[in-house]
């Protein structure tokens, strides 16, 4: 199982990062772009299957072995209510830390590392309940809308009864 290390060509970008800026890892689900703060990302790996977990919601794809510990994988597409991803080897799992836990998020592809200003982050427009539940904010970058993922919200409510 190969792990794609976070690229180290982001040195030039970190140089401009100030107190008021934020670095995001951007990834795509279909046409949509989402981002998480780069500091929460631990590792990016190619999809290589997962052992399904019974009694969990459809967006829990199962668990994988990450160097001896068991890490759950969340299907972000399913989490946003667009049905389960049919993953191939080209799909990507972004492993992140949420509190003291590590989780993997299944996405279509990792697209970029973005540097954005905190001032450019806007509130999520009312209307789409799932978006307001799962996003911390929205930022525009190169005329693309990037939704900032609220990881705590994404991983909550994973069990059938919860």
């Amino acid at each position: 199982m190969e792990a794609l290390a976070i690229r180290d060509d982001m040195g030039d970008k970190t140089a401009v990062v100030g107190a008021n800026t934020l670095q995001l890892i951007a990834f795509s689900i279909g046409e949509q772009t989402y981002g998480v703060e780069i500091t929460t990302v631990r590792e990016i790996r190619a999809w290589n299957g997962a052992t399904p977990l019974p009694n969990t919601r459809e967006f829990v794809r199962g668990v994988i072995n990450l160097r001896g510990t068991i890490v759950p994988i969340f299907d972000l597409r399913a989490r946003f209510g667009d049905g389960q991803t049919s993953p191939t080897k080209n799909h990507v799992v972004v492993v992140m830390s949420v509190g003291d836990k590590w989780v993997g998020i299944l996405v279509d592809a990792v697209s970029d590392i973005l540097t954005v200003s905190r001032d450019d982050i806007h509130n999520v427009p009312e209307g789409n309940a799932i978006d307001t539940e799962l996003l911390n904010g929205i930022v525009t970058h190169d005329s693309r809308m990037v939704g900032l993922i609220d990881l705590h919200a994404v991983v909550s409510g994973a069990k059938m009864d919860g």
Binding site: L53, G62, V63, K159
Partner: peptide, 27 residues
Amino acid sequence: IKSLEENFERVDGIAGGTILGDGNVAL
């Protein structure tokens, strides 16, 4: 024996996980 709760939460009917020789997780 590996804990599921370490990174997830308790799941009904499952006592934990373990890693098989091929690297896959068995419950």
